[in-house]
Design a protein around this nucleic acid. Structure first.
Length: 696
DNA sequence: TTTTGAAGTCTCTCC
DNA sequence: GACTTCAAAA
């Protein structure tokens, strides 16, 4: 079963056994205890990596509940869905199932819940649909084209840039002009045109009942700031607000928090400026330092004792972050000994790097480390392609976090577009997507059809009344029939799965025409159907997919079967907040990590450094950083060197590591690869299918 | 006006 | 190596 979007909608059964009263503070160190048992008023916890931040927050939730605060009046905002789940399940261990009533989730998911509840009072339509980033970019393209931009002008920004600038404008509150000057100097001359497009984009959104990710925050902030009565009702929902990863919040989110806590100021935030890695979403690590300004009389607690890593690992990570240009927290220390310095592995090439990592993983596994206690971290999702192939060949189960998502695949978005049109007949983005798939319908016909539907106020039958040109007649009738059937269908249990079956009766042949290798894509659609069957309705399904997309192949396989022992491959971003017994950071090559895109900007380079810090601080006992000496670049004309060790592993860092040079095996590995010991579960078929499609 | 094939453009991170 | 854009053919 996929996760439901909101614990509030589907409350778990209460356990009747009361949790035993216990002295929570005794299980924490002095600073953690002070933070956990803090009374009322603002609290800022500066917590270094591995200092028990989650533990402290969990204990604080437990403390509040034991002191009589109703769980449902506690709001716990986290950055990722994974963090929210982790925290709530740990809280449950402490105080029992009452913690399940704690409200929480990501900022966006929480904003969504509030908008569904209060949006109609704020003038929002009740049945809006959520666009993901790709959809928003497509709508930006429609807005741009409708104003006639982008025909001849060669250097006009493309839809992705337009959307980025728009989003940045909202999240950082910087004027568009200033963003252009700082980040898109070549487009400054189009400043007025860009603003016009944004206005068109905004009005299209509201005419079409569409809401983008930023709107979920923006409307939330507006309800708090512009409507005193609404603000009172929303503020009145929560007595305590706790925020994780505060260093990754932006100005808009800070505004929301101020609005939420206007009456009681019972706000607790946790963060580490050294782990701020989301500036591309408008976050700035200074926000955490401004917290005491926004919330006067804030108590500040710093956690500096690291419980995670051995001293040799900490020596390396401390050195990495010590090179940062601006630092505010102090050096972490630990009582955990250890003599094994982290490894710096120089491989000859990518293949050797892969072989080394896999061999070492098997070694650790034979020594007794479960696979799920081992992680391979990469700067970007695609960098694990070779490794994934090798793991598949050698039959080692793994799950992948972050990176290219299932839902971003074109054929999956196609099928979802049908569902979305049913849910919201005004969804212009989805209409356009569907229409362009139909044989005989192109850009012009599609626009004409949408215009005709708009003229009929997006009446659900508007599409079938359109009189298509001759060559599009068959396609039009087929689509109109499909929509009529789906709309007329009355089903017992949601029936999203049956909807997908109907859609595929039309779509599968289109898919097969469009793609050479259609089998893995058809398999993806089988998978989508399995996921859909677990949801009670189209609208819940669609909202859940937009806000809480399956973020690992494990999620996709439909399992929360955590006893499945599988290696984790993750982007560094998705790995934040997690820890593993053994961590491999691969591709530590200048141009990859740091990414070449960041190398001409000091701030971005600093963020890459923090990213390396986040990656290396995930390790408890074993850390290995690997890089290949020879990278066979398939791209031409790059302005960065491709065969150098990452600049973050400078001499001082290297001195604290052991150099390891893999030995070539005497003979190539046997064709079938070395199988795992029999005790290990084989990978599930569905995951293997997905890997075939998304692995690279 | 649509489709198709070829040249050209970039490449991330996440809600 | 995947996706977009452009030009020519149907």
């Amino acid at each position: 079963m996929p996760d439901m979007p909101s614990p509030r909608l589907y409350p778990a059964r209460e356990r009747t056994v009361a949790s035993p009263a216990r002295d929570l503070a005794a299980e924490l160190n002095a600073e953690q205890g002070a933070a956990a048992t803090h009374g009322e008023g603002p609290l800022l916890i500066i917590a270094g990596a591995g200092t028990g931040k989650t533990r402290t927050l969990v204990y604080r939730v437990a403390h509040l509940i034991e002191r009589g605060v109703s769980p449902e009046r506690i709001l716990l905002l986290t950055f990722t869905r994974r963090a929210a789940h982790e925290m709530l399940s740990r809280a449950e261990k402490l105080v029992g199932s009452a913690s399940k009533r704690v409200q929480g989730g990501t900022f966006h998911a929480t904003g969504h819940r509030l908008l569904r509840q209060f949006g109609p009072d704020a003038g929002l339509p009740k049945d809006f649909s959520i666009m993901d980033q790709g959809d928003a970019e497509d709508l930006m393209q429609l807005a741009r084209a409708s104003l006639g931009y982008g025909k001849q002008e060669k250097r006009f920004p493309k839809k992705e840039s337009l959307h980025y600038i728009y989003s940045r404008h909202l999240n950082t509150e910087k004027p568009v002009e200033q963003i252009l000057q700082q980040e898109y100097a070549q487009f400054v001359e189009f400043s007025r045109d860009i603003v016009r497009i944004f206005a068109e984009y905004t009005s299209r959104k509201s005419e079409r009942n569409l809401v983008d990710y930023d709107d979920l925050l923006l409307f939330w902030a507006m309800m708090l700031e512009q409507s005193p009565s609404l603000a009172d009702r929303i503020c009145g929902l929560y007595d305590h607000v706790l925020v994780d990863e505060y260093q990754d919040t932006n100005l808009l989110q800070a505004r929301i928090l101020r609005g939420l806590c206007r009456h009681h100021a019972n706000i607790t935030v946790v963060g580490d400026d050294a782990q701020s890695i989301y500036s591309f979403r408008g976050a700035h690590f200074r926000n955490i330092l401004d917290f005491p300004k926004h919330f006067p009389n804030a108590q500040i607690v710093a956690l500096e004792q690291n419980y995670r890593s051995t001293q040799p690992i900490l020596d390396v990570t401390n050195t990495i972050i010590s090179r940062a240009l601006e630092r505010f927290t102090k050096t972490l220390w630990t009582q955990r000994g250890g003599t094994d310095a982290p490894w710096l592995v120089t491989a000859r090439d990518e293949q050797q790097q892969t072989r080394f990592v896999v061999d070492r993983i098997l070694e650790l596994h034979e020594e007794g480390t479960p696979l799920k206690e081992i992680a391979v971290l990469v700067r970007a999702g695609y960098m694990s392609a070779d490794l994934e192939i090798e793991l598949t060949n050698r039959n080692i189960p793994f799950e992948k976090w972050g990176g290219l998502k299932f839902l971003e695949a074109a054929h999956v978005k196609d099928v979802l577009a049908f569902l979305r049109v049913l849910e919201n007949p005004r969804d212009e983005v989805s209409w356009y997507r569907i229409l362009m798939l139909m044989p005989g319908i192109g850009d012009v016909t599609a626009r004409a059809m949408m215009e005709s539907m708009a003229d009929r106020s997006w009446d659900p039958d508007a599409f079938s009344h359109f009189v298509p040109p001759a060559r599009a007649r068959d396609a039009h009738r087929g689509l109109a029939d499909l929509i009529r059937r789906l709309r007329g269908a009355r089903r017992e249990d949601g029936g999203v799965g049956e909807d997908i079956d109907e859609i595929r009766a039309l779509y599968d042949s289109i898919l097969s025409e469009r793609y050479d290798r259609s089998e893995p894509r058809l398999a993806d659609l089988d998978q989508l159907r399995v996921i859909a069957a677990g949801y009670p309705s189209r609208s819940v399904f669609l909202a859940a997919l937009a806000l809480e997309p399956p973020s690992s192949t494990q999620d996709l396989a439909g399992g929360s079967e955590s006893d499945n022992d599988a290696l984790v491959i993750s982007t560094v971003h998705s790995a934040k907040g997690k820890e593993w017994d053994a961590v491999f950071v691969i591709w530590a090559v200048d141009g990859w990590f740091p990414s070449s895109r960041s190398m001409d900007d000091e701030d971005q380079l600093e963020e890459e450094r923090r990213l390396m810090y986040v990656a290396t601080t995930r390790a408890r006992n074993h850390l290995a950083v690997t890089y290949p000496l020879n990278v066979y670049a398939t791209r031409r004309g790059q302005d960065y060197s491709i065969d150098q060790l990452s600049r973050f592993l400078d001499r001082g860092v290297r001195d604290k590591m052991q150099r390891v040079v893999p030995q070539e095996p005497a003979a190539p590995p046997p064709a079938g690869g070395a199988p795992l010991p029999a005790s290990t579960e084989p990978a599930i078929d569905l995951r293997a299918l997905l890997r075939g499609r998304f692995g690279g």
